[in-house]
Design a protein around this nucleic acid. Structure first.
Lengths: 219, 219
DNA sequence: CGATTAACGAAACGGATCGTCTCGTATCGT
DNA sequence: ACGATACGAGACGATCCGTTTCGTTAATCG
């Protein structure tokens, strides 16, 4: 944890994206970083994860070996294993959020939850999500970054749909917005993250949304 | 991971409780294990966790130091850090499940979810639960033990209440039992495990249960 | 009482990984 | 050509794991 000499000149993928005008400065002097190396490292991480290894089995040296690079090359780009995991997650998680606001609020909710389900059914993404979540839960600083980059946009999209539903009179206006979101997202996240052995049938989003909308009390 | 000479003679707390008649044999010959040491180790784990350390900060050597014991004494009782964590969790998690079946199904559901909320509001239990969950998610074998010891009993209690509700006509009978459980438990577990920064007000269980029962669609 | 048996604290060991650092080489701009 | 920087390879000290040894302590058995 003490100061070192390895200088992280810049970070292409943005784990510590410099906020102020750092981009428009001229190209740095020496040999530029290889984009191929960048992708080889991220691809190596994903490849190692497909074997369903434990978190401790994903070592930096193993990543370097799998990617055919030196360790220093990894530490030149990321401050540690955790930030690298976050960027690896980002390479899988770049699908755009589904369009909302066109049809009924009910269909928008189904679309958003189906989007979450898709993460769970993909073996590769599921394994990665599981490890990242477990890693993030122990690192408060990473927890913040993970929340900002991955959780917050989804929660915001869900929130907008819910606000639209309240305004249009389709949803009750006497329930906390946050609670409302958890009612819809909780059941699906529970299956994708907590117990991965649960099945994720195609119609699960529909069933969740309709059950939460209509209530489970026998009329 | 290779075979060793340290023989685990017996395991008081039951991480590998011998199923067959092993208990009624006469007292073993030599010096018995100190119960005080047992509790000192578990207490040391809990004390280290209150500082909100990352999972890697909870080292076996640190536990031994905190408890004032030797490392071998820990490995004499538990096969590794993970199993020790599970037993430490058990020392906090020995409150009996709330009584159900007396009044309305709605009140039973509130009681069960309030029971989950209590885990989340206790700082000590919350931290421990967070670390154990993260540890468990990476160890398939531990995941099984964790599920059997902690998850399954709660799910079973919830399931019984739901079955009673269906039989008595209070709950719809056209929804999967498993989905029904996730609808109630998901929102609360989401807050206690996934984002620990969320508030857990006292009336949250009531609000969850009533919202899921009545539905969130505007009538 | 004395012998036996096993747990105890302390400490050392080999192995693995981390994060840093140093080489010699390769590739860029000037 | 030259300086600057990234690259792969690998050594380094530090830390932790899980095992093992050592001398001591506490219980049972004869």
């Amino acid at each position: 944890m003490k100061g070192g000499t390895v200088t992280v000149r810049d970070t292409p993928t943005g784990w510590n994206s410099e906020p102020a005008g750092a981009e428009p400065r001229g190209r740095p002097r020496g040999r530029p970083r290889s984009e191929a190396v960048e992708q080889a490292i991220l691809e190596g991480v994903l490849r190692l994860l497909e074997g369903g290894g434990t978190l401790s089995s994903l070592t930096v040296e193993g990543i370097a070996k799998a990617a055919g690079v030196g360790k220093a090359t990894i530490y030149r780009r990321w401050p540690g294993k955790e930030a690298l995991l976050l960027d690896a997650l980002a390479t899988l998680d770049n699908d755009p959020l589904p369009e909302t606001g066109s049809g009924s609020v009910r269909d928008d909710l189904v679309r958003l939850i189906e989007f979450v389900r898709q993460r769970g059914v993909s073996k590769r993404e599921s394994e990665l999500l599981r490890l990242v979540t477990s890693e993030v839960m122990c690192h408060p600083d990473l927890s913040q970054q993970y929340h900002d980059r991955f959780i917050a946009p989804r929660r915001e999209a869900l929130r907008q749909v819910l606000v639209r539903g309240i305004d249009s009179g389709e949803l009750r206006d006497d329930i906390d917005l946050e609670l409302l979101g958890d009612l819809f997202a909780g059941p699906m996240l529970m299956r994708t993250v907590l117990h991965q052995w649960a099945a994720l049938p195609e119609d699960l989003p529909e069933r969740i949304v309709d059950a939460v909308l209509d209530g489970v009390r026998k009329k």
